Simulated assay, not measured.
Amino acid sequence: MNPSVELPPAPDRAPDVEDDFTGGPDPRLWVPHYLPHWTTPDRSAARYRETAGGLELLVEADQPDWRPEDTPLRVSNLQTGTYSGPAGSRRGTHRHRADGLVVRTPTPTRLLWAPSAGRVEITVSATRDLGCMLAAWLVGTEHDDETAAGEICVFEIDAAAIGATTTARTGIKAHHDPGLTTDMSEVPLPFDATAPHTWTVVWGRGETVIGCQGRVLRRIAQSPGYPLFLMVDLFEIGAPGGTYPKAAVVHRVRGWEFSR
């Protein structure tokens, strides 16, 4: 983190979307499933509970793996829309697995919030629970163009990387977008990420700025220029173990859409 470079201020207007998760995820904004088209509803469904400070994403002892092919991988995710092709097709949001994803549960095109440029602020508390990762991404919807598939990785925080200081991953992933170049970095954070903290991404017009706690972490000279869904998720990536439920908190999300 560069303590000398402040993030640009938020727009001087109310956010276009805002959720502090009072009463649970706002159904006008969130789909509480992880990429449901690539799997079945029992496997994609998020587990969560409301708390005084926000929404606690959970991985529970009886939670199934996201896909049988990806065992062990369990996840509770919120995303701001869905898109897929028909059953048996390979068309759908976030074709991120190299082993060939196929649509198992067709989903409607729901663009609950899918800005092509904008600003997002996400306040979270990560987890030290064994084998877990808390992450937030903006991913190409692909509903108009299968090459509109790039990703802004706002953050990925492994439980094992959290201590008095924390290491996180952040940057751009090209996936199937030939106009982007994957550019990911590990960044040091001078605090324990299990405490509440706010990530910010501002993107558009060929630049992506990612920051944390009001300071710039990365300035990248590229950005996706097409609709993106926001995804916030808790993963258990390793074999089941430790104490359940495993949990991380999403305290608040705010977002503004900009013109391209």
Results as ranks from 00 to 15, higher is better:
residue 5 V to G: 07
residue 7 L to D: 03
residue 17 V to E: 14
residue 18 E to W: 11
residue 19 D to W: 00
residue 21 F to K: 02
residue 22 T to I: 09
residue 23 G to K: 01
residue 26 D to I: 10
residue 26 D to H: 05
residue 29 L to I: 12
residue 36 P to K: 06
residue 49 R to G: 03
residue 50 E to Y: 00
residue 54 G to L: 00
residue 55 L to M: 00
residue 56 E to N: 13
residue 62 D to A: 11
residue 65 D to N: 08
residue 68 P to R: 07
residue 75 V to G: 02
residue 75 V to E: 10
residue 75 V to R: 05
residue 76 S to V: 01
residue 80 T to L: 01
residue 82 T to R: 04
residue 83 Y to M: 05
residue 84 S to T: 00
residue 84 S to F: 02
residue 85 G to V: 09
residue 86 P to A: 08
residue 88 G to M: 10
residue 89 S to G: 09
residue 91 R to P: 07
residue 92 G to T: 02
residue 93 T to L: 09
residue 95 R to D: 09
residue 96 H to C: 08
residue 96 H to D: 14
residue 99 D to P: 06
residue 99 D to I: 11
residue 101 L to M: 13
residue 101 L to Q: 13
residue 104 R to K: 14
residue 106 P to A: 05
residue 109 T to I: 14
residue 109 T to W: 15
residue 112 L to Q: 08
residue 112 L to I: 12
residue 116 S to R: 13
residue 117 A to N: 08
residue 119 R to G: 11
residue 120 V to A: 13
residue 122 I to V: 13
residue 123 T to H: 01
residue 125 S to I: 04
residue 134 L to V: 10
residue 134 L to D: 05
residue 140 G to E: 04
residue 143 H to I: 15
residue 143 H to Q: 15
residue 144 D to Q: 14
residue 144 D to T: 15
residue 147 T to M: 08
residue 151 E to L: 02
residue 153 C to Y: 12
residue 154 V to W: 03
residue 154 V to R: 06
residue 155 F to V: 10
residue 156 E to Q: 11
residue 161 A to T: 07
residue 162 I to K: 06
residue 163 G to F: 11
residue 165 T to P: 10
residue 166 T to D: 02
residue 167 T to I: 11
residue 169 R to L: 11
residue 170 T to Y: 07
residue 176 H to I: 04
residue 176 H to S: 10
residue 177 D to H: 11
residue 177 D to C: 05
residue 177 D to M: 07
residue 180 L to T: 05
residue 181 T to F: 14
residue 181 T to W: 08
residue 182 T to I: 04
residue 185 S to M: 13
residue 188 P to Y: 05
residue 189 L to F: 14
residue 191 F to M: 14
residue 194 T to G: 01
residue 195 A to Y: 13
residue 196 P to L: 08
residue 197 H to I: 09
residue 197 H to L: 07
residue 200 T to R: 12
residue 201 V to E: 13
residue 202 V to E: 15
residue 203 W to K: 06
residue 207 E to T: 15
residue 207 E to R: 15
residue 209 V to E: 15
residue 211 G to F: 05
residue 211 G to W: 08
residue 213 Q to Y: 05
residue 213 Q to N: 13
residue 216 V to R: 11
residue 219 R to P: 09
residue 220 I to Y: 07
residue 222 Q to R: 07
residue 225 G to H: 12
residue 233 D to F: 04
residue 234 L to K: 02
residue 234 L to V: 04
residue 235 F to V: 12
residue 238 G to Q: 02
residue 240 P to Q: 00
residue 241 G to R: 02
residue 241 G to D: 00
residue 242 G to C: 01
residue 242 G to D: 02
residue 247 A to C: 12
residue 248 A to E: 06
residue 249 V to Q: 07
residue 249 V to R: 10
residue 257 E to I: 06
residue 258 F to A: 14
residue 260 R to I: 12
